[in-house]
Write a protein that binds this DNA or RNA. Structure first.
Lengths: 367, 367
DNA sequence: TTGTAAGCGTTATCAG
DNA sequence: CTGATAACGCTTACAA
């Protein structure tokens, strides 16, 4: 077989993908409904007919099995298996006004930390029988508003955000939904409904504290201009002032697209007349970029320049000398959020609505 | 303000989150439906009454404006704005058997490449009026099956997977859905329906070719045991044989959890009696781990050991000497997939169903 | 414990 | 171009 890298001639190799034959999974669904010739899905009526009960009994058997006598329950179960029936969530939602879908909106799917949180949240919610789906808002108010408006129609069981909602109109819209709303990743005084978060402002203070303890006296900030970046900057700024450190520069960017943004920030930071002894990067991607650029320029970290990050990026630990970074347990955030949503959904009367997570410091070697 | 890092005493700093007052966004929804005292959402009937038309006319005005006369269209539009009406997707889906939701299932949200593809796909589909939501299957057949079964009931407009479906029962189930199914990230001979993919087997051949051209003669493989990992290994294995290279070892892992897995693989690879001159890592996270471990062990890359990756990871370029990596344009994959789904959904008669992407090589310095 | 009747909000169908 | 009617599949409310 020839390998041709620039083949416009369709000389290529198919993937012989493994095919795994039938497992013990329930019978496939295509089901010839009695009478109707279509191969459509079975409906609750079909199951009821097969089990010789009323449709409503099927409904009950599926949602509150204990309300149905054991023999009917068994017949129904058999009929369900035979037909491959599963509830039509649209019909269910239309009638009951509820659905088993929990929606999450992430401002950025490419964030390692968000992904981690969403993954653990998925696990918790799906184990409880919910379908957990994720949409993207891309740090755009417009998309966020669109998402929230569509929510209003879709009536999910609950909604979660990787962040807090800033637009007052959107907060209002969400309140009107009458479902549990979970905000995360910050610690506002007035969450819409539920919250699993931490103080970004405090993170900034902690950053200042760490740098101060390590003996740095002149520092600069690198981070996003808006949102949580601004909060961390505020804390850092206040912390520096309180501790008598000089905040030489603030290198703000609108959007983090990759490590190269960090490189640029470092270049900007050291090109200033007064060069800082250390940098607080409110985002590990930026911090990594700074570390890489520092190495390229033969600036020794931490000897010539301390670098402190935020976010506990996986690889941050791996780049010598190891990025010291502030962060939270993202997986735990997701898990907690999931658990709190579940208990709220199951109608627990005084389920906690707020959970503050502690920040922690992973001391590696970069400051 | 005090900073206390180990505070169990709730001494912490709230985030003063920015609040942005009302924009020109449409009036919030809570709407007192005439007659009923509830503050519930407006329904199509409410809009119809206000506009003095029949409900069906509202429905048409919203979906095919050109079917309704301009004056009624205007009255309806006004009524919609006044009531904050939006279509109830459940009722709509129930009746029509269609919805505007496109579902994607990712085996792993933490993959940089998947995220990139999903992001561009989101953009394309949302611009076309679809709601694009992502679920996770976590490389688990069980979760995948559950997801697919729930699909059957939910009737999304289309479904997409970051991968191809291996279980025959699931393929059958998906075929029965009667909606566009998009598989990606591989090049099977018999996709279920639509496909935007590339040949993983070919990627392995290319890897062998690259290493051979660079003069390596004894090599080892590092990668996932199953799925696409196995395909890349197959191509690499065959390529090595064809080119007369010796494939010394295969270091297979079940699941990539982070860079440390790569470290372990490198350690295993070099501890063999016959040490390979180069490594092909079928995954950039593993490749990065290998590079980092190599540096730690003072193994010079590429002089002592060549390392070739797959996936075009962002940071791969940044770690000296720069990881040479094979890959595709993930953003383009997502965009293409989105576009093809849209044209299929809009009923284009012979819209292409298959698209093969070319592999490309980012030559940096690690081989 | 089980069943009957009604309707959730929308759209397909067909008639005007 | 517009409207009346019925039905999608399910669950609430009530009755037996």
């Amino acid at each position: 077989m020839e390998i041709e890298r620039e083949d416009d001639k369709a000389t290529f190799v198919y993937d012989e993908v493994v095919r795994i034959a039938g497992t013990g999974a329930p019978k496939p669904v295509p089901f010839d409904v009695e009478g109707k010739g279509q191969p459509g899905r079975a409906s609750i009526g079909d199951v009821a007919r097969l089990a010789e009960v009323a449709p409503i009994t099927v409904s009950r058997a599926l949602r509150n099995p204990e309300m149905v006598s054991p023999d009917k329950r068994l017949r129904i179960q058999r009929a369900v298996e035979e037909t491959g029936y599963s509830v039509n969530p649209h019909a269910s939602a239309l009638k009951s006004g509820r659905s088993n879908i929990v929606l999450a909106f992430a401002s950025n799917l490419m964030s390692e930390q968000f992904s981690l949180a969403l993954r653990s949240c998925t696990a918790v919610l799906e184990d409880a029988g919910y379908l957990f789906l994720v949409g993207q808002t891309s740090y755009s108010y417009e998309r966020e508003t669109a998402a929230i408006r569509s929510l209003h129609a879709m009536k999910p069981a609950a909604v979660m955000f990787t962040g807090v909602i800033e637009l007052e109109t959107n907060r209002e819209l969400l309140r009107g939904l009458g479902i549990p709303i979970m905000e995360t990743w910050a610690l506002p005084r007035d969450p819409i409904d539920m919250l699993v978060g931490f103080s970004n402002t405090e993170a900034g203070w902690i950053a200042a504290d760490i740098l101060h303890r390590k003996g740095y006296r002149t520092v600069s900030y690198v981070g996003r201009r808006g949102g949580r970046g601004a909060l961390r900057l505020k804390g850092f700024h206040d912390g520096c002032r309180a501790l008598g450190m000089t905040l030489l520069g603030e290198h703000l960017i609108d959007d983090v697209n990759g490590v190269s943004d960090g490189r640029r920030c470092l270049a900007a930071a050291i090109s200033q007349a007064a060069r800082p002894e250390a940098l607080f990067c409110s985002n590990d991607v930026l911090a990594l970029g700074c570390m890489m650029e520092a190495r390229r320029l033969n600036i020794r970290v931490p000897n010539d320049l301390g670098i402190l990050g935020f976010g506990e990026s996986d690889i941050a630990a791996e780049i010598p000398p190891g990025l010291t970074t502030i962060g939270i347990d993202s997986a735990m955030l997701g898990r907690k959020a999931g658990e709190m949503l579940i208990s709220s959904l199951s109608g627990a009367p005084f389920a906690g609505k707020l959970k503050r997570l502690d920040l922690r410091v992973s001391d590696r070697g970069s400051v």
